[in-house]
Amino acid sequence: MGLTVTGLHAHYGKSHVLRGVTFELPPQSIYSLVGRNGSGRSTTLKSIMGIVRPTEGSILLDGAEQSGRDIRNIVRAGIAYVPEDRLVFPTLTVAENLRMGQLRPLPGRVVWTVDQMYEYFPRLHERKDTKAGKLSGGEQQMLTMCRSLLGNPKFLLLDEPTEGLAPKIVERLVEAILDVRKHGVSVLLIEQRLTIALDISDRVLVMGHGHIVYNGTPDSLRNDADVQRNWLAVGTSVS
């Protein structure tokens, strides 16, 4: 069970971006994917989704191969994706954006409703008839996450959800992510701020040069100065 990625390779034109990514994401867990810019974190998510076609490797979702399938079939199989650039549909209202995310509930899935989303983020309810293009960055982030959740995924892939948001909103998002896990959804999170990643994750995966170079619990990463120095922040350490 879970999402098992084995030996994933991907190319952008001639550059070899992923060079054998391997990890396993069990049900009901939060994993963070950290690393420097260009280490291949976003490409890993895009390859899992089929947005970038992996050139080699396998992606098993509860034992079923997803590699090579169309994006929409991967989504329907239970993996949802929130891209980095928060692609809301700007001309649609908030409520319509949410309706775009809804898919027919399948057996064995955690089913989400629009009302639950409004409970997570009352702000969205207040602005439900506003065009999504007029929302603030934080509101757009809430919207895209909710929109993807409404497809009732087993696995939720989030690409830098907290980027550029005010601390208050980040707090709100983190609470929501933790609650989503409680309901039985696994989250794979790309996170720039190591403190957040270490706080909420069950395990942290560190990427470098297109590989997973470290896979361990937050506690062991906290104590591993080598990994931090070699693969993460430039000169800053985590207390």
Binding site: L87, E96, M100, L103
Partner: peptide, 22 residues
């Protein structure tokens, strides 16, 4: 619903696909 998807696809076709629509 079809109209909704068409309107969404007018601005972000790839995102529509990433939400599981054909």
């Amino acid at each position: 619903r079809v109209g909704l998807i068409v309107r969404a696809a007018l601005s972000q076709p790839l995102m529509v696909e990433s939400l599981g629509h054909n």
